[in-house]
Design a protein around this nucleic acid. Structure first.
Lengths: 207, 207
DNA sequence: GTTTTTCCGTACTTACCCGTATGGAAGTCG
DNA sequence: CGACTTCCATACGGGTAAGTACGGAAAAAC
């Protein structure tokens, strides 16, 4: 049934994935160092004995968690890509969706912060590369030459990352409530260049 | 004379500031958890005995380091502000300078990642707020109304933060070598709106 | 029903770090 | 020269987490 997640959910037995998810939760507000076997066991309502049956050691848990994270993160992008045909709308969708999931954002930032660890670095690099490639493709579909598409994608992605960070470290700096959407519109308007149209309020895309 | 920094610099005696600087170094590639008394002592070529003479405990060291960091970081902005009169040039200067100091950027990211700690949170918030205020002022000097100036400042600062992160986590994604300046120009052109001129290749906005 | 297999608890060892206690060397001042 | 301050080393106790060894209960397999 997979009732799933967080509190002592009195499951009959735990699976390796349960441990991996718990580890990812721990990363959100403890970074990589936050992933400790004994505290996780306490949070799951068991002891270390359970853990060392599912995993060889802490390193294996970390790798499994990262694997799980990376695959989930890439699937998400593909899922969104299929939805929207218009490249302009597609970019907008990505942006708004990216600003929606609070937890995923925090998790990404936590992992990125642990990038000094070579294990983490590989996965973070892979995910961010995947996202950038996807964005580049969107911009290319918009009619930009490959070179420019890459630049705009990098630009947009950087802004996205920065907004994420500001949201975490200084939420009061972002426009509150309803004004945030207005702010988002400014970002979108600015980050999606027009090839040579009229900028009244509508949008169209070149082939 | 302050020959200073890094390796076992055979100084006659250590000062509290030496410990604070070492702590900041440790934060760059270990986060807040990287600040441990005994490892720091080893790196400085002494023992804990030294540390606990200069500081009451680890917490005092962390606070002192953060204090040192925050003051240095705000001074930097003020120093740059005085240099350039033209608001447009001023923003450009800030951007280029901000992309110059590798270590400071990594340090900021490391501290921001530790923002869950209330001690760190206060300082990070203060520094980022200070920067945003400064940027807002620049945009206001550019002729934008306060409200729009804040939005653009937030936008620009987000992009800056994101670029910083990309630089750390996925350097290959950023345009290499000479092309990076070209990329920076795109950022600057886009992030500094023109009140009513002819944009060379892009966009305009309503008041 | 008994034997595995699954899953977890308990106990122990090792290792690292914080904090304290205490003493000692080198300079300073009378 | 002797007392006193400055700065650091050494030694110890306490805490927490990584692994390991082993044992046990409960379900699954036979």
């Amino acid at each position: 049934m997979e009732v799933a997640t967080s509190m002592a959910q009195q499951k009959p037995t735990l699976s390796a994935d349960d441990w991996a998810d718990a580890a990812l939760d721990a990363m959100v507000d403890g970074g990589l160092d936050g992933v400790a076997v004994e505290p996780l066991a306490r949070k799951l309502g068991v002891t270390k004995g359970s853990f060392y049956w599912h995993f060889a050691n802490r390193d294996a848990l970390i790798r499994a968690s990262l694997e799980r994270w990376a695959s989930r993160e890439t699937e998400q992008i593909i899922a969104r890509a299929k939805g929207v045909k218009q490249p302009r709308k597609r970019i907008q969708t990505v942006f708004k969706a990216a600003n929606g999931s609070e937890r995923e954002g925090h998790l990404y930032l936590a992992l990125a912060a642990a990038s000094r660890d070579p294990r983490v670095a590989d996965f973070v690099h892979k995910v961010s590369q995947r996202r950038l490639d996807f964005l580049s493709e969107c911009y290319r579909a918009l009619g930009l030459p490959t070179r420019d598409a890459r630049k705009w994608a990098t630009f947009a992605y950087s802004t996205f990352l920065g907004t994420l960070q500001l949201r975490r470290d200084n939420p009061s700096a972002l426009p509150p409530g309803a004004m945030f959407n207005e702010y988002l519109r400014l970002l979108i308007e600015t980050l999606i260049p027009r090839s040579g149209e009229q900028p009244p309020a509508a949008n169209e895309q070149a082939a």
